[in-house]
């Protein structure tokens, strides 16, 4: 089974990857891993046709929740991360009541406003959120050993492996959801909510479900971030990062599961390796903007459309299958 071998090879490459990198590149790799989960969770929301501008703030909800749970209540770190995701999902359910009275453009603006309100609350209430300075000294993930490998979380490599496992599990769950009848219903709600409703689908409930799941996984990504950098503040979750998430999703394409992930990885590599080496880091917003415009003009279906071209051709040459496996 060549497909199986490809997966093994990819896994081996991912395990070996940090050993070929410098310390700062290893750190970037950790952020990249976390951002992959962020953007993949964002895609689940876009399945129902809604584009939110509050996703990064929801990520922050997970970060704050997990940080506070460990700091104030002494919850054990990996469990606090899970709870951070649960709290982010619950906040999303609450937000869905006002937000899902809106659709399309209004939802976009509404989600932005909701996010800004949450950030304002973080700034306003110094207890417990720490005000504009945020929370410092967040408990790191405690070190542990699994026999053949000693996790030492001062090392980015260790955290990369740890986050990688969590992200992989989360991606697997997201993928299972998308390929399930629930995922099909999300698509149905997106393409023709009237017909979906006439088929007995509670459209409102499904939109809320997608929003809650996406937010839950965004929350976990936020918690992973918080316990890695040890300090969070409201500005870490501002609109800048949201624009990056949108850029990753648009440049990668949102028609497939891997599209946004591809966008995130490719743009991060361009940004961190190429731009940093060239000393053009300061121009990141400009260059991201240019890439976004260029990709909308010349690659309207995203990077994924290039991949699809190749896999389609391969499938066509192989078996006379009408629908190539995605």
């Amino acid at each position: 089974m060549p497909k199986f071998l490809i997966w093994i090879a990819a896994l081996a490459a991912l395990i070996a990857l940090p050993h070929g990198l410098s310390f700062s590149q290893q750190e970037i790799l950790v952020f990249l891993t976390i951002n992959v989960l962020l953007v993949a969770s964002y895609r689940l929301l876009t399945l129902t046709g809604e584009w939110s501008l509050g996703h990064v703030v929801i990520m922050g909800v997970g970060a704050y929740s997990s940080a506070l749970l460990t700091k104030k209540l002494g919850v054990y770190v990996p469990i606090s991360m899970l709870l951070g995701g649960v709290i982010a999902a619950l906040i999303a359910v609450l937000l869905s009541f006002p937000l899902f009275r809106m659709k399309g453009f209004y939802f976009l603006i509404g989600s932005f406003a909701a996010g800004e309100i949450i950030r304002l609350l973080w700034k306003r209430f110094r207890d417990p959120f720490g005000g504009a300075k945020g929370i410092k000294g967040i408990d790191p993930m405690p070190d542990f050993s699994v026999g053949f490998y000693q996790f030492d979380f001062f090392e980015p490599t260790s955290y990369y492996y740890f986050a990688g496992i969590i992200v992989a599990v989360c991606l697997w769950i997201l993928w299972r959801i998308e390929k399930s009848p629930v995922g099909l219903t999300f698509h149905a709600v997106h393409w023709q909510d009237k017909l979906a409703q006439a088929s007995g689908v509670n459209v409102r409930a499904y939109r809320t479900l997608a929003f809650a799941i996406a937010s839950g996984f965004a929350g976990i990504s936020g918690a992973l971030l918080a316990h890695y950098i040890g300090t969070i503040n409201p500005n870490a979750f501002d609109i800048d990062l949201m624009v990056y998430v949108l850029t990753w999703a648009i440049v990668g394409g949102t028609a497939t599961f891997y599209g946004p992930i591809l966008g995130c990885v490719v743009l991060t590599v361009i940004n961190e390796i190429v731009l940093r080496e060239l000393g053009l880091e300061q121009m990141r917003p400009l260059i991201y903007g240019a890439i976004m415009i260029l990709s909308i003009l010349f690659l309207p279906n995203g990077l994924e459309s290039i991949v699809q071209k190749f896999t389609k051709r391969r499938a066509a040459e192989g078996a006379p299958e009408r629908r190539p496996a995605e």
Binding site: P181, A188, A196, S199, G200, V201
Partner: peptide, 9 residues
């Protein structure tokens, strides 16, 4: 999608 009701996901 039409089978949503008899086979609720």
């Amino acid at each position: 999608v039409g089978t949503h009701m008899p086979f609720r996901p």
